[in-house]
């Protein structure tokens, strides 16, 4: 029930921000849409609803956001360098890495972070065995453990503290 309430509040305020009118018609339509969205998507929401309301997890989340933005900027400079270089310095390939994260939210965050990180793109997730298949634009090593150390380790450590 509590996750339906959270989703309803989120959907309602998103609607209010997007329509930016607080007269009666907009609020009634917003409530209807909020109820619809919260009932449709509650099963997809994180099972442990209030996971971030925790003094051990919350500071790591605020540490994760600037780190993520910094990696994003580095990824852009790296990508722009590879594109404008006359020789196209790329050695692409799909490598396999291991992950120890188990929860759905953690894996989603890890895959999305890896996609926006320099040089990597998540192609598929094998949740049962804990493997990620990653397209790497500059393959430095093909071994599973070595690639795990280079690609996943840094963010997995933080996401483990947040979501596990």
């Amino acid at each position: 029930m509590i996750k339906r309430v959270i989703l309803f509040i989120g959907a309602f305020f998103t609607w209010i921000f997007l329509s930016w009118d607080t007269d009666m018609e907009h609020i009634i339509v917003g409530i209807a849409i909020g109820i619809f969205v919260s009932f449709m998507t509650a099963d997809l929401f994180e099972k442990r609803t209030l996971i971030l309301v925790n003094l051990k997890r919350c500071p790591w989340f605020f540490y994760y956001i600037p780190l993520f933005i910094w990696e994003c900027i580095k990824a852009n400079i790296d990508g722009a360098y590879r594109v404008v270089h006359p020789d196209l310095p790329i050695r692409p390939g799909i490598v396999k890495v291991r992950t120890t994260l188990k929860s759905d939210t953690g894996l989603t965050f890890l895959a999305n972070t890896l996609t926006l990180k320099p040089g990597t793109l998540t192609v598929d997730i094998d949740k049962e065995n804990g493997f990620l298949y990653i397209h790497w634009i500059d393959v430095k090593t093909q071994g599973v453990e070595a690639a795990t150390e280079l690609i996943v380790h840094k963010f997995e450590r933080i996401l483990k503290k947040i979501f596990e």
């Binding site: 050695r91 390939g93 799909i94 598929d124 393959v139 093909q142």
Partner: peptide
Amino acid sequence: LWEKSVCDKYS
């Protein structure tokens, strides 16, 4: 994949 790709563990 591109023909100069190094490896394809997924396939």
